[in-house]
């Protein structure tokens, strides 16, 4: 059975398991929706007072905000195994169990759980994105829609890569790794606005160190037909979500190095 079909089997098993406690995931999903929803309510309040940010309207911001939120929500839903890796696999020694199976450890961890509670964040992102699509001052073409989906997919890959890197750190330490949230959750927060509103140093950080800009800012400016502050031509802006996939690939390579370290030191 190939990896993709096996992944489907894992996902089905995980969902069946969570369905045994329907109340728990529903409440967590509601909490996620509420928390992310008030975030956007704050953005709305600021627009009601200031009118625009750096020349961008609320509708355009909703597009950035929704696309990044959805990308993160999808990556978050599919990466639970990496999220709890330090606590539930390294600390407990349960990682050995995965090493004893004839499959890639990354595939097994990806299949560990499909988190239904992420529907809360996902639905919030979808609502905001719909608002953005509605309000954005362009006529949507098929090409634009494809580019939007392509950007979100690249965002999923990039965030997934970040979450894998975070899990990889667990091979070295399991203490206080929540600091890494400043790039995951912090990245989501930063990517919700077009990068040109930020100070130069921060904008460069979010473009060249954590490539949030490649999966949000660049392709979305291409859709909106606006120039980008990095001076990238339109075709490059459209192609840039590829960087998200490259980032995921690099994260998997580093993950492999972490696994090799684990197998040579033991737990």
């Amino acid at each position: 059975m190939n990896a993709l079909r096996l992944y489907g089997r894992y996902a089905a098993a995980s969902i069946a398991g969570q369905m045994q406690y329907p109340g728990a995931f529903a409440l967590t999903a509601v909490a996620q929706f509420a928390n992310t929803f008030v975030g956007f309510a704050g953005v709305w309040a600021l627009f009601a007072r200031f009118g625009h940010i750096g020349g961008w309207s609320l509708g355009e911001i909703a597009l950035f905000y929704g696309a990044i939120s959805m990308a993160f929500a999808i990556a978050d839903a599919l990466s639970r195994g990496f999220d709890v890796f330090g606590q539930e696999f390294v600390k407990t020694g349960n990682f050995d169990r995965l090493l004893l199976r004839p499959r890639a450890t990354s595939l097994q961890l990806a299949g560990y759980e499909v988190r239904l509670a992420s529907l809360g964040r996902l639905s919030q992102g979808a609502v905001v994105l719909a608002v953005g699509i509605w309000l954005a001052p362009i006529r949507w073409s098929l090409g634009d829609a494809t580019l939007l989906a392509w950007a979100v997919a690249g965002g999923v890959a990039m965030f997934y890569g970040l979450l894998i890197l975070q899990a990889t750190l667990s091979f070295w330490t399991v203490e206080s790794l929540e600091v890494v949230n400043i790039v995951t959750y912090g990245g989501v927060e930063a990517g919700q606005y077009p990068l040109d509103i930020y100070a130069r140093w921060f904008r460069d950080l979010m473009m060249f160190v954590v490539p949030i800009g490649c999966v949000g800012y660049l392709p979305l400016t291409a859709i909106l037909g606006r120039p980008n502050v990095f001076g990238a031509p339109a075709w490059a802006a459209a192609a840039s979500p590829l960087v998200g996939w490259a980032f995921l690939g690099a994260a998997l390579v580093i993950w492999g190095a972490g696994v090799r370290r684990y197998t040579s030191t033991g737990s």
């Binding site: 894992y10 098993a13 398991g17 169990r97 499959r103 097994q108």
Partner: peptide, 23 residues
């Protein structure tokens, strides 16, 4: 002291998952 089966799943479903994992 450790299980290789899925905690919340009926045993038969764990078996079927293992079937797919081990091809």
């Amino acid at each position: 002291q450790r299980t290789q089966l899925w905690w919340d799943l009926p045993v038969i479903e764990s078996f079927e998952l293992l079937r797919d994992i081990y091809r």
